[in-house]
Amino acid sequence: MNAIQFVEQKSIEKSLASRAVKAESGKSVTPDFRPGDTVNIAVRVIEGEKERVQNYQGVVIARRGAGINATFRVRKISNGVGVERIFPLYSPIIQSIDVLRRGSVRRAKLYYLRGMSERKIRAKLH
């Protein structure tokens, strides 16, 4: 490992150490999730002095990058409006990533879901 990877790894490990780990259940801190899976992301939100946890639930539509630059994109329909959020995979503000439901898709990037209704998406994924 070269020095740059060493520094990146240190930052990644620090982020992962702050996550809510369920070691006994064998769950890894960055679970093996794929595009098409429905996930729940617990995000730490810092509001002034206080810190609370916000849940963001949706369908993973893309993963990209490697190492510390890895990100993934989660789409959900909120009050009838499509919302997409990009999370850095190793961000320390992510407390946990839970896979709620596996999807079965053939593509790596599910951008075609953007034009579909909720019901159609459900039918497509499962």
């Binding site: 020095a3 740059i4 240190k10 982020s15 961000s91 320390p92």
Partner: peptide, 22 residues
């Protein structure tokens, strides 16, 4: 100078940084 990368701070921000063997 060994090169650049980015690391996360506690607020989850990605900070560009340079790694130097000193």
């Amino acid at each position: 100078k060994l090169g650049m990368t980015s690391i996360y701070n506690d607020r989850g921000e990605s900070i560009p940084c340079t790694v130097v063997k000193a």
